[in-house]
């Protein structure tokens, strides 16, 4: 019976009139159209960056914020803190010397890993991808971070440590 029908096309083929080869084939015309679409998508995403930068400008830190009593941070130590209970941007306060304080954002400028101060080498380290920053200025010393760490200005008054927005020299290019 099977031998008899072998020359004929099986009846199920009539229900699937498109060959799988034809269905999966991508012609050069289709590929060129896809590239046009992709190009438009890239332009749109670039436009999204512009709209986002216009709609949500980076807010400056208003006023001075109390961080900690000065005597609670020994020389060579680092303290992690948030401002106003806002834990979106964590900061670090470093006491480099008796009267030398620095405050930086804790997010690495590469992929926002948490950075930490290493007293033994007097540098700030990002352990994720071996990025190193200067503990004095926040400048990138080594590794993949593209920008310096954003810095806050530290004010010590009557034994209390406050931070405020500095000149933002690390942010302007």
């Amino acid at each position: 019976m099977a031998k008899k029908d072998s020359g004929k096309e099986p009846s199920w083929k009539a229900d699937f009139p498109i060959e799988s080869k034809r269905a999966t084939h991508v012609s050069r015309r289709e590929f060129a159209k896809f590239l046009g679409l992709l190009s438009g998508a890239f332009a749109l995403s670039n436009g999204f960056i512009v709209i986002r930068a216009m709609a949500f400008p980076d807010e400056r830190l208003e006023g001075e914020h109390f961080v900690v009593d000065a005597d609670k941070v020994p020389v060579g130590e680092m303290l992690q803190f948030e401002i106003g209970g806002e834990d979106l941007i964590p900061y670090i306060l470093i006491r480099l010397e008796e009267n030398k304080w620095r405050a930086f954002e804790q997010k690495c400028t590469h992929l926002t890993c948490a950075v930490r101060y290493r007293e033994d080498v007097n540098k700030i380290e990002c352990p994720c991808h071996n990025g190193w920053f200067s503990a004095d200025t926040g400048e990138v010393l080594q590794g993949p971070p593209p920008r310096p760490l954003p810095q806050l200005e530290v004010v010590v008054r009557e034994g209390k440590v406050y931070v405020r927005e500095g000149e933002r020299e690390n942010r302007a290019v």
Partner: peptide, 24 residues
């Protein structure tokens, strides 16, 4: 543009958008 927009460099983001749009 992604790198520069993070640094508040709006002019660069706008210029790259115009260039990208022309290419699209």
């Amino acid at each position: 543009a992604l790198n520069n927009a993070l640094e508040e460099n709006f002019g660069f983001a706008l210029t790259t958008f115009i260039g990208s749009l022309l290419m699209a």
